[in-house]
């Protein structure tokens, strides 16, 4: 991917609340371009909300999200849809929609009202389906897919958006171990081969440590600490953020830190 297309996102003192509940409290976070940033933290810490705020699905009370030093609240919806893609948590579409019809939805931000579907749209859809391996099932209805296939079809939909930043909210939630790896390897491939900036919310700390370039612990609506997984996977920090006493060892295969939880702290 063209380097100039890659954008840098910076979250600046973002405060966001639902009613009286402050979910994000003056949270600041740089998201380096071309890297995989993983947001982790206990339930209700605000990590999903942060991800959604990065795509402007929630309006903040104060603070900004900057994209290439420009406040995203000044961009229109379609323009932002060409820059940041988001795969929501448990997305849904009609069961009788075909894989190809689903992936085509990703072209929405590239289409103008009444403008006909272009060869460029076709190429993007084909590339997205090929890149995720769903091209062989493009005429199948999504209701007939397995969980892993369905998730790949959804990722293809986001890929067809051709954004240089892709946010995925708990993409491996309902997948078995093999498909969790499939999904995250696919995401890593998009990052390494196409230079796309990836922001993930993951619950599994060991998967987070394995795939993250930047690991971010969110707690109490703030960034508690961020850094390389090796620096972040410390017993004291995990005890504080996740309320779990854990031992950290190094994965002998990937040389990444792994956390072995003992008991609640």
């Amino acid at each position: 991917m063209d380097d100039q297309l890659a954008s840098r996102i910076e979250v600046k003192a973002l405060t966001l609340s639902y009613g009286n509940d402050v979910v994000l409290d003056a949270l600041s976070l740089p998201i380096p371009k071309g890297q995989i940033t993983v947001l982790a933290g206990p339930n209700g810490c605000g990590k999903s909300t942060l991800l959604r705020a990065i795509r402007r699905l929630h309006a903040p009370q104060s603070g900004q999200v900057l994209l290439d030093a420009e406040d995203i609240s000044k961009l229109n919806g379609k323009a932002l849809g060409r820059k940041i893609g988001l795969l929501a948590q448990s997305p849904s579409a009609p069961q009788d929609m075909t894989v190809e019809e689903l992936v085509r939805l990703g072209r929405y931000p590239h289409q103008a009202m009444l403008q006909p579907w272009s060869p460029g749209d076709d190429a993007a859809v084909a590339a997205a389906m090929a890149g995720t391996g769903v091209d062989t099932m493009k005429h199948r209805r999504i209701g007939s897919l397995s969980g892993g296939q369905l998730q790949r079809a959804w990722i293809a939909m986001v890929l067809a958006q051709e954004t240089d930043t892709i946010c995925l909210d708990e993409p491996v939630n309902h997948l078995d171990m093999a498909h969790q790896l499939d999904c995250l390897e696919l995401v890593t491939k998009l990052n390494k081969e196409q230079g796309r900036t990836i922001v993930l919310v993951l619950h599994d700390l060991n998967l987070a440590a394995r795939y993250a370039d930047q690991l971010v612990f969110v707690a109490g609506g703030k960034v508690r600490e961020r850094g390389a997984p090796e620096a972040m996977m410390r017993a004291d920090l995990i005890a504080e953020v996740f309320s779990v006493n854990a031992e950290i060892i190094t994965d002998p295969v990937h040389q990444r830190p792994i956390c072995i939880p003992h008991r609640r702290a």
Binding site: K78, R82, L87, P91, L105
Partner: peptide
């Protein structure tokens, strides 16, 4: 075209820019 995208859930449609 917007209605096509709105067949997906609200979060997805909104993130596409609908």
């Amino acid at each position: 075209v917007a209605l096509d995208a709105m067949q997906a859930d609200d979060s997805t449609a909104a993130s596409l820019g609908v």
